[in-house]
């Protein structure tokens, strides 16, 4: 049984790893949206958002740190053995190149996710009211 479970873990696991950064974006997004909804509907009197701002900035810093970690790990995998500096992955039919491909995809998704996280925190910084 254990080797069969392995297929599920390594298979889906590796594919899910490249989506780790977008998942972090998604969690960050849900936390921002949920926290704002609950804060503005239930917690605040008079619609000020100072506490909310501080909390969400903290969440954002953590999210960006996690995404950066994903990106760094991905970068290491991608450029393993000095390959990939020009963006192309040489040789495509061995396990190593498959791994490097997954690394490259991880890096790219980390970049897009980081931009996404920064965009999503902008409204919290720029709109200081529950109106």
């Amino acid at each position: 049984m254990s080797d069969r479970k392995e297929e599920f873990r390594t298979g889906v696991g590796s594919l899910m790893k490249i989506t780790l950064a977008p998942w972090i974006w998604a969690f960050h997004f849900v936390i921002c949206y949920g926290a704002t909804a609950v804060w503005c509907a239930r917690l605040t009197e008079g619609g000020d958002t100072d506490t909310l701002q501080i909390a969400l900035i903290a969440v954002t810093v953590v999210a960006l740190a996690c995404i950066a970690a994903c990106g760094i790990v991905g970068k290491r995998v991608w450029t393993r053995g000095g390959f990939g500096e020009d963006g192309e992955i040489p040789g495509i039919d061995d396990e190593e190149s498959r791994t490097r491909f997954l690394g490259h995809a991880t890096v790219l998704l980390s970049i897009v996710s980081a931009i996404g996280v920064v965009f999503v925190i902008l409204p919290v910084l720029m709109i200081g009211t529950c109106r």
Partner: peptide
Amino acid sequence: IMLPTVVISALLAWGLSVMP
């Protein structure tokens, strides 16, 4: 990546600033 990020960040900031 680069061009849209710059253009859209500026646009988004403008849009958010006029909402209130």
